[in-house]
Design a protein around this nucleic acid. Sequence first.
DNA 1: AATGAATGAGAGTTCATTCAT
DNA 2: TATGAATGAACTCTCATTCAT
Lengths: 207, 207, 207, 207
Amino acid sequence: MSEVAYLPVGKREQTKVQNRQAILDAAREVFGELGYDGATVRDIIRRTGLAAGTFYNYYRSKEEVFAALADDGARRFNPILKALRGRGGPLEDFVREAIVAYFEFMADEHETWMGRRPAGEPQPHVHGETPEMAAVFAEVKDAIENAIAEGRGPASDAEYMAAAAIAVAREVGDKMLMRRPIDTAAAADFAIAMILHGLKGVPEAHG
Amino acid sequence: MSEVAYLPVGKREQTKVQNRQAILDAAREVFGELGYDGATVRDIIRRTGLAAGTFYNYYRSKEEVFAALADDGARRFNPILKALRGRGGPLEDFVREAIVAYFEFMADEHETWMGRRPAGEPQPHVHGETPEMAAVFAEVKDAIENAIAEGRGPASDAEYMAAAAIAVAREVGDKMLMRRPIDTAAAADFAIAMILHGLKGVPEAHG
Amino acid sequence: MSEVAYLPVGKREQTKVQNRQAILDAAREVFGELGYDGATVRDIIRRTGLAAGTFYNYYRSKEEVFAALADDGARRFNPILKALRGRGGPLEDFVREAIVAYFEFMADEHETWMGRRPAGEPQPHVHGETPEMAAVFAEVKDAIENAIAEGRGPASDAEYMAAAAIAVAREVGDKMLMRRPIDTAAAADFAIAMILHGLKGVPEAHG
Amino acid sequence: MSEVAYLPVGKREQTKVQNRQAILDAAREVFGELGYDGATVRDIIRRTGLAAGTFYNYYRSKEEVFAALADDGARRFNPILKALRGRGGPLEDFVREAIVAYFEFMADEHETWMGRRPAGEPQPHVHGETPEMAAVFAEVKDAIENAIAEGRGPASDAEYMAAAAIAVAREVGDKMLMRRPIDTAAAADFAIAMILHGLKGVPEAHG
DNA sequence: AATGAATGAGAGTTCATTCAT
DNA sequence: TATGAATGAACTCTCATTCAT
């Protein structure tokens, strides 16, 4: 009788949350394996064991679940990044810590992303560019540009710098995930060194 | 130079070559505009003025024409690379010259690839990853790994090094193509400095 | 008038009746706006604020609620018709009074049916053919046939006569509803004259 | 060599024409049986024995094939109507001849339309309102209105008159088609008498 | 070799209906 | 009895590929 009204968590609500999560997880896997275009809504729901129509109770389209994935990733990684940026230290510190955080995040998530492209296919598709990573990259790029603008980093071509730093992180991270055991420390060391030394050697802005 | 007159280059032969080239050209455009998945065989043949079935006289599938495109790109860029690699100098020289050659090649080819993605779409897709570029990257990566193996470069993690170098070249190259005027020299300066300084600072191999 | 207090009209009972009516009303609207095929059960229940499943506690299918609507319409119009038919006068009188009653009924009901088809669609669809009208027509047709059979009307082809009379009433009624102000008297005058003069001129039965 | 260039009627062209016609015929049947909304493209192609995709080589959508059907009907019946209208005689003559022509046209076409609604279904749907008929009715209505405007017919409510005349023709025609044998003469006699006598008795315009 | 219509698997999506709560 | 998420058959339409001409 006194069914304490804490939260609306009946079995139904639970199932709903679980299903939503199941679809999100399946979508993550499928997009990772097949790329955005290669993936089909059917691929996603098939992996959940749910019925075809059920997908549409949660997301209105393939595009929407993709967007949700990006939100999800950003929601989880951005706080870390925000904290790092809040400190306002030199760019060097930010890069160092961001890379470490990013690689660890990647490794954490990684089993979901492991279904790599079946090597027969042409080549294109997503790269490391999962929706979640896209959100992360946007944030990093912004941070780097801010740091440069505030004089906390070398005054070179901000866009090129951000692009180069991100590119290194992404590619090295990608490679890292393909090795066993996954050694985030080594990969981070490499990427940090590459980026910091590289950026230091970059020519002055030509503006 | 003096196209020897007695080769069996009848009209038919010529048409065949022309058609093959027309399809290749159309495919280049279409893949550039729509991406691999977004492109349809119909898009390609429509642009050639040929009939649907004719496509299959030349390529057995969409995938095959994509691969042919990669070959084509490699065929045109590889001589440059080969010459560079033949000299066997230090990695530094190779990187410097390869980057310059690559950026100029990119700028050259560029107008063909200008039909960029209609920015409304989600996120992922091709990157600068045209089939031709893919071939180029494979070659560069090979060269870097060889150089390292031969002691002509710093003994660090070869795979990470190649990945990082290529990543920087690709991303900076991509950004370069988006600016007006396209300044290959400045972009090359940036990328070369970034890569060389970066690689120099990279930790020793942990093997 | 004095709703006797001791009938078993508990809250539950009332809710049930109310829900049934709410569904019927919503269905009337939705069928009117979207047509039978265009309408979805979801459209109907959404308009009631009830849950999807609840619909099936009252009607077993879309078809059944449609039929119920016809019954409902008949139930409301038939008393008028029955009274008219009970008098057993000449067909002329019956037609005259039936038309007047019908047009007034139509005008009365009219606002419910105003959500007319979004004119972009092809062509066909419902006509004035709401389920309630269908029931009314069946009744009128029956009356005319009876009158003829009883010698209270000209002995021509009964089916053709009924069809023609009904057709005129329906179409003129439809047009009437589209004008402002709605002039039932004028429309009825027209329809009555058309039907009575028309039927009078019709050839003798060829049986 | 002298393959006389009369017309491009190779076997291919023939098949194409045949297929187009087969789809049109199937569509006529299916729309007749199921109504516009009830009909599916699948129903149509299933009846042709063609493959699903083939439909779309000929018509881009259900709507388009429906429109084509209307065109087809109009194309065949309108010349008759046009000829009748060209004579400019009194409305009476026009009605008489138009009804005869229309009923004969209906009977001609009729076997295609015989698949009547499986009597269990609700009721709504197309009535006699096939796309072809729709075109025909538009023409008739226009003719009647013109006649009235030119003083070649009684000056009453033009819209009501047209609606009533069309309604009678349609409904009586519908009934006619359901009888065996189909007696167009008797049906025409009835409809003509009904319409002409009816219109004559109609009240003066209330303008 | 070129043609272009035919094919049919499969994509995204809808919706009447069921059923656990 | 009310709820509303789950179901899955069916739908419209696309497109790589085949094949008769």
